[in-house]
Simulated scan of single mutants.
Amino acid sequence: MDPKTILEKLENTLKNNDIEFKKDIEGLGQVDATEKRSNGYQFTLQDHLRGLILALLSNQHPWKPIANNLDNLETIFLDYQPEKLRKTDSKDIINTN
């Protein structure tokens, strides 16, 4: 099967399952990050920490609940600021409501 046909079938399958993949892909920030990287943007440690934490949380788990709680996660993980996270006891992060 040629790549174009595979892509069309994949898109149809996602659409038939009510998965708005284009919106989801853009919502992940990957498209924006790729454009920034192409334009020479230097990602910060804070950017990398955010990506790492979200990758770890989403490993073997659906993305949607994580996406629905990005603001809460930002608060829990102290805006992904390395110094704040380094100085905070992990028990305080775990017990965040």
Rank of each mutant, 00 (worst) to 15 (best):
P65L: 09
N39K: 15
D2C: 08
S58P: 00
L78I: 01
P82M: 09
E74W: 09
Y41V: 09
N17E: 05
K84Q: 07
A55K: 15
T5F: 05
I19N: 05
L85I: 13
S90F: 14
G27I: 10
T13D: 05
N12Y: 03
T88N: 05
D32Q: 14
S58A: 10
N16M: 06
R37Y: 15
I94P: 10
E26F: 14
P3Q: 08
F77D: 01
L14A: 03
E11F: 08
N59R: 12
N97V: 08
T88Y: 02
K87M: 09
Q46L: 08
F43E: 04
P62L: 10
T5E: 08
L56I: 14
K36R: 15
N39F: 14
E83K: 08
K87W: 10
I76G: 00
N59F: 13
N68L: 09
N59G: 09
T96I: 09
S90M: 12
L28N: 05
A33L: 04
I93Q: 01
E20C: 10
T5D: 06
L49T: 05
V31M: 11
L10S: 10
K22P: 03
L7V: 12
S38K: 09
G29K: 03
H61L: 13
T44H: 05
I25W: 13
P82D: 03
F21R: 10
K64N: 08
I76Q: 09
P3G: 03
S58F: 06
L56Y: 12
D89W: 03
I93L: 15
W63P: 05
L49N: 01
K4G: 00
P3T: 10
G29C: 04
N12M: 02
N39Y: 13
S58G: 06
A33W: 00
D79V: 08
K91I: 13
S58L: 00
H48N: 12
K9R: 10
F21W: 14
Y80T: 00
G27P: 04
N17K: 08
P65N: 04
